[in-house]
Design a protein around this nucleic acid. Structure first.
Lengths: 184, 184
DNA sequence: AGCAGATGTTAATCTAGATTAACATCATTT
DNA sequence: AAATGATGTTAATCTAGATTAACATCTGCT
């Protein structure tokens, strides 16, 4: 965060006093579908997956969040409505958690943060739109190659079947793609 | 916009003095892929399509913007980098255009606008994420039904082959879906 | 009126990716 | 070390949606 906003000592103290730092264990849920998402979380260490469970019980992974990423169901957080997504820790994960009430307070106390969070959201929107374009202009194989480049480390940290779910394909087909790529 | 921010008379005057209102004709481009997107545009009347032209020359429609929507390549606008998308008018279209330089000026003169644009971006991000989820949890037919409900009017205003492109399917398959739905 | 270009439909064939199921590996637990 | 459960691979078959191509309609234009 230091890269994006410069805060005075008092502002820093105020911010730190309002943020909740908490550690979750592997497997624990930060948000469950249907809950109201009370916190917007900055990942200090570890890894989370954000996923949607469809009526047929199929899991669709929307994003992975690793160190220095944000993790929350923004739709639920912003409007304080039931979450569409589950967020679960794939590893032991440390979070800096901004609660809904506190974030409004932070905006009025430290107007620079309004700008900061606008920019965070802008980057999120840009990434999300790019993902839509990829999903309909690239083949599954191309998307997997893109994924591998985008997250060179994450690939080793999470199981293949979750990568398949993130890409919107089956684990069997991902396996086929990987063996194809190995031959090339 | 009046629904989201309350401005004093001076603020209103200042805003109006900085915004460019312009009319485009059907077929004209507001942004072309590779350009730097200089304006973030609010659609006063008419309709635009935002699309990506892939290396094979295939057109992929990312969104339609009608009255009261925003239309821009935010990625390009925010970072002042070459645009990934084309934005073209499907009808004669009136826009309120906020230039990159002016928007920064507006944020510092009228801090309330910083909040307003953060909220606009948040709503955009929520919509974009929901679209991703739909694209991998709904069949083409279900997505078309969703589209028809979401934009009951747009359906009559734009050609079928563009709707197909928006849905990420071919026009022939959309035609098949429509005749299936007509029988039900 | 008649022609050209843009849009829409139908039907036959093709393919990327899904599904199913059998088997392989690897960790944990007992 | 054997057993259980979680993960990964391979191969056979199936299907949603793509492609191609022929034919309608529906413009506007001369």
């Amino acid at each position: 965060m230091n890269d994006y906003v410069t805060l005075t000592e008092e502002e820093k103290d105020f911010l730190v006093s309002k943020v909740i730092c908490r550690k979750y264990l592997k497997g624990q849920y930060i948000v469950q579908q249907g809950d109201i998402c009370k916190y917007s979380c900055f990942v200090l260490s570890g890894c989370t997956k954000t996923f949607y469970m469809d009526p047929q019980g199929q899991e669709h992974i929307v994003m992975f969040s690793i160190e220095d990423w944000w993790s929350s169901d923004i739709g639920s957080f912003i409007n304080q409505t039931p979450a569409d997504f589950n967020i679960q820790c794939l590893e032991s994960t440390e979070l800096a958690m901004f609660s809904y009430d506190v974030i409004e307070e932070l905006y009025s106390e430290i107007p620079k943060l309004e700008r900061f969070f606008r920019q965070v959201t802008e980057r999120g929107l840009i990434a999300s739109q790019k993902r839509i374009v990829r999903s309909f202009s690239l083949s599954a194989k191309e998307q997997y190659i893109y994924f591998r480049n985008q997250y060179p480390k994450i690939d080793q940290r999470i199981p293949q079947y979750m990568i398949a779910s993130y890409l919107g394909i089956t684990k069997e087909f991902l396996s086929k793609i990987k063996s194809q790529l190995a031959l090339e």
